[in-house]
Nucleic acid binder design. Structure first.
Lengths: 153, 153
DNA sequence: CTAAAACCTCAACCAAAGTGGAGGTCAAGG
DNA sequence: CCTTGACCTCCACTTTGGTTGAGGTTTTAG
């Protein structure tokens, strides 16, 4: 067995442990670190060591991702915390509130679309100018070019 | 001026015209064609020609995309239509009904997440085992690996 | 007829959010 | 001591939904 299996009362974690405890792959932790979302230091053998609160950070990242927040935005939000500290309850309040607003907005858009879809089922219209599905107008406005991201399935 | 500016009563359209009328870029039309979502034939000079109903197909594609349906699934749905014909009102009824179910599901997931987020704002818990945000369990189940897509902003 | 605009193909590139492998190092158990 | 598993870096590849550009052809307006 590896050295990461049985260490009670640890105050620092290896990547493998963080991976197992947080449920994300080791490669993903590397990736998050490269993107600045989490931090680590190195031991004498150049291996990553994490403080236990990285688990909370990863948890927050995953929740925000499920809410549809792109990693970049999550990183920016986390980076705004003084000292890059792990969010306190108060920090989490602010973060989750802003993400909730985002989520509310996304839900509202989708709901409006659904309603129009319901109205239009079977109408076969889709006519430019008259069909609401064809007139994104206000809430469903133009979406510019570039890659478009979808909701996690 | 190009040759596509002033042709009244056309029954076939050039890419540029389809692009202008449907609101998507020429490159996107090429892309959709490569993916089998739309079809065209060629004139003597090897230029694409479309029947007018490609506009309806593109309209349907865009609506489905806004509902969060991936292009591949849209293509499969359109391909199921006999003769690859342009959807009739009845076809559209079936298509939009299936996409609406998808949309309903997505909205339901996001709504549950929002509610949990609301419950948890400020609680600072995020504790494994107890926080609903940390327990995707049933409705918010595991999301496998691979690229994740987000909702169109 | 000529020049400009629109078209063609093919290939590379973009972003996001990772995954996977090659080749090499480190640590711990037996 | 030595094997094994965990770790390291770097690079390439994946998918989705396109965009951009190079280099060449066609069409059309003047």
């Amino acid at each position: 067995m590896g050295y990461s299996a049985c260490r009670p009362e640890q105050r620092e974690l290896s990547v493998g442990e963080v991976a197992r405890r947080s449920g994300v792959a080791v490669s993903t932790l590397h990736f998050y670190e490269a993107k600045g979302l989490i931090k680590s230091w190195r031991n004498a053998g150049n291996q990553r060591r994490y403080s236990r609160d990285v688990l909370r950070r990863v948890a927050i990242i995953k929740v925000a991702q499920r809410a549809g927040i792109p990693l970049k935005a999550i990183g920016e939000a986390l980076a705004l915390l003084p000292d890059g500290r792990t969010p306190t309850a108060e920090d989490w309040r602010r973060l989750s509130a802003s993400w909730k607003a985002d989520l509310d907005d996304r839900i509202a858009r989708l709901s409006r679309l659904r309603d129009h879809l319901g109205d239009c089922i079977g109408c076969g219209c889709l006519s430019i100018d008259t069909c609401p599905l064809r007139n994104p107008g206000d809430e469903l406005g133009e979406q510019g070019p570039g890659p478009r991201l979808l909701e996690p399935s």
